[in-house]
């Protein structure tokens, strides 16, 4: 019995969500008296650092077939080392790539699968995990009964704990399965923080009146080191790309801070953001339903409040 965790990387760098996943695995291993093996697939700098987050050993799998992400190839390789190491729990980040792998890993390991996991398991009687359901409107407790469990951990759900030391990295050669899919190109949004992983999100709605006014939203986001998001009407009107739409039929996010500007707070929007730790609402309508779900609120015109807020954010973060 042991815990295996997939450390996802992008542009040779491990994602923050990978450090969370390793920290999570270490916590579960501590509770159940077992060890953590982190598995790094493809090119990534400094695999040894995964030890600092609690991995006892690190397995690195490399080769031309692993240079770009392919869920078939990655899942088969990860499942292979899980099998060899007799893994009882496999932890993967609940990112697009992670979820794409998790399903295939679960089939390969004949395991119980839970995605959207938001907390540590309760292992006192079985293996009970808490997962988000109804697009953030509720949580479910599910008992995983198979011998092997695959968990996809939602980013920003647990704290990163850095209390280990660099681990020994073992390169393992794993034969890549053949795939009829070939990645021919990537279009990365550079210099921006991915929305699903952002700790701070600045989001705006129809109250911004038009796409031309988004420079203020972006400026505030930049000052706070935040990702930008928007409401459904805004993406429906093509003011902003669909990938920024948070809400029931968009993305569900879980940042530490969510700032909503000119968004009234329809139930579908709240669904996507209600797991945020702190919510700030700025709206000129004091009756906007969003204020009921907020921690801090400002009743005011976005066009008057935002410039002052940007100024304050800039001087605060500069100090």
């Amino acid at each position: 019995m042991s815990i295996f965790v997939f450390a996802e990387s992008s542009d040779n760098q491990y994602k923050k969500s990978s450090f969370e996943a390793v920290s999570y695995a270490a916590e579960v291993a501590g509770k159940t008296g077992t060890t953590v093996t982190a598995v790094s697939i493809g090119k990534a700098d400094n695999a040894a650092q995964l030890g600092e987050y609690g991995a006892n050993t690190v397995i690195s799998i490399n080769g031309p077939a692993f240079d770009s992400f392919n869920s078939e190839i990655y899942a088969a390789a990860f499942a292979e080392v899980c099998k060899q190491g007799n893994a009882s729990v496999a932890v993967i980040s609940n990112t697009y790539c992670g979820k794409a792998m998790a399903g295939r890993v679960a089939v390969a390991l004949n395991a119980s699968l839970a995605s959207n996991v938001v907390d540590y398991p309760d292992t006192s009687n079985g293996f009970l995990v808490k997962r988000g359901v109804f697009s953030g409107k509720a949580f479910a407790y599910v008992n995983l009964t198979s011998q092997v469990k695959v968990l996809a951990l939602t980013p920003n759900s647990v704290e990163i704990k850095k209390n280990g030391s660099a681990a020994v990295v073992t390169s393992q050669s794993v034969a890549a399965v053949s795939s009829t899919c070939t990645v021919t190109g990537t279009n990365k949004i550079t210099g921006k923080i991915p929305l699903t992983e952002a700790e701070v999100v600045v989001s705006a709605g129809r109250g911004m009146k038009g796409p031309e006014n988004w420079n203020m939203v972006e400026e505030l986001a930049e000052a706070l080191g935040a990702a930008t998001a928007c409401s459904k009407p805004v993406s429906d009107m093509h003011w902003r790309p669909h990938s920024e739409h948070v809400g029931q039929t968009g993305i569900t996010i879980k940042p530490n801070l969510y700032i909503a500007i000119g968004i009234s707070g329809a139930i579908q929007h709240l669904a996507g953001v209600s797991s945020s730790k702190v919510i700030v609402v700025i709206n000129k309508d004091a009756e906007a339903p969003f204020f009921k779900a907020a921690d801090y609120g400002i009743v005011g015109d976005a066009f008057e409040v935002l410039p002052k807020l940007i100024q304050a954010a800039k001087s605060a973060t500069a100090s």
Binding site: V133, V142, T145, Y296
Partner: peptide
Amino acid sequence: GVEYQSFELPQPKQGVR
């Protein structure tokens, strides 16, 4: 291998400041 045991609603906010 997955049994839904119970559900929970998010904690309501303490009130807006």
